[in-house]
Amino acid sequence: MLTCIGIDDEEYNNEYLKHCCSNIPFVKLIATFTEPFAARALLSSGEIDLVFLDFNLIGITAAEFIKELPLTVKVIIVSSEMEGRIRDYDMDIITIVSKPYPCERLLEACKLAAKMQFKKRSKK
């Protein structure tokens, strides 16, 4: 089970993320945020495995925000930004899901995250 949060400044994107995640049995989306700083306490709690992160954040760049995350937290970028521009930042992410996306695309990204999580746990 992947315990996740979503961060997107547009609430309708968070609502769509909730809808998609509700149909993925191995994903537990516990919260969404429109401001990245509001998620800091939860992220530092050790409960979160994965963040669905919009590339265009309020008050901080996605690249800066990712650097502040605990090493155990993985990131899937969900953005309408051009993929090439996102990759230029050389961030430590699992994958990029381009908006608008079908729920099936999010499922594929979550499968990648789960595979990485399983490998990490099996190495311990």
Rank of each mutant, 00 (worst) to 15 (best):
I77P: 04
A39P: 02
M116W: 08
T95I: 00
Y89G: 04
E35I: 04
G59P: 10
P36W: 02
P25L: 07
I60Q: 01
V51K: 01
L2P: 08
F55K: 08
I58K: 11
D49M: 07
N13K: 09
R87Y: 09
K123I: 03
T95S: 12
A31F: 05
L106E: 04
A114G: 11
L42K: 12
L50T: 03
L50H: 10
A41I: 01
D8C: 02
A62E: 03
G46W: 06
A63W: 00
G6C: 01
A41F: 03
N56Q: 09
P100W: 03
A109M: 09
K99P: 12
M82G: 05
F118D: 08
I24V: 09
K74G: 09
L29M: 02
E68W: 01
L71C: 05
L29R: 09
M116H: 03
P36V: 03
C110A: 12
I24K: 11
R40I: 08
T3H: 12
S45L: 14
F52A: 01
I77Y: 07
C110F: 09
F118H: 10
L71A: 15
M82D: 10
I24F: 13
G46S: 06
P70N: 04
D54M: 03
A114E: 15
K124Q: 10
G6L: 02
I48R: 05
L112C: 07
T32H: 03
I66V: 13
K120D: 13
D9T: 07
Q117H: 09
Y12I: 11
C20I: 03
F37E: 13
N13I: 11
G46H: 02
I96H: 05
A38G: 06
E64C: 01
I60D: 03
D8N: 13
Y89K: 14
Y101Q: 04
I66D: 10
A109H: 13
E10V: 14
K67H: 06
I77H: 01
K124C: 07
P100A: 00
T61Y: 00
I93Y: 01
K28Y: 10
L29P: 14
T95P: 06
T32Q: 06
Y16F: 11
N56P: 01
T34V: 13
L57H: 11
K74I: 01
I30Q: 03
L107I: 02
E47R: 13
V51D: 00
A113V: 12
M1L: 09
L57R: 02
I76Q: 12
E68I: 03
A38F: 07
K120W: 12
Y12T: 13
N23G: 15
F33C: 01
K67G: 07
K67L: 10
G84I: 06
L2A: 10
I66Q: 12
A63V: 14
D88Y: 06
L2H: 12
E83W: 00
I7L: 00
M116Q: 15
A62S: 10
A62Q: 03
A39C: 10
L50I: 05
K120M: 15
K28T: 14
I7N: 00
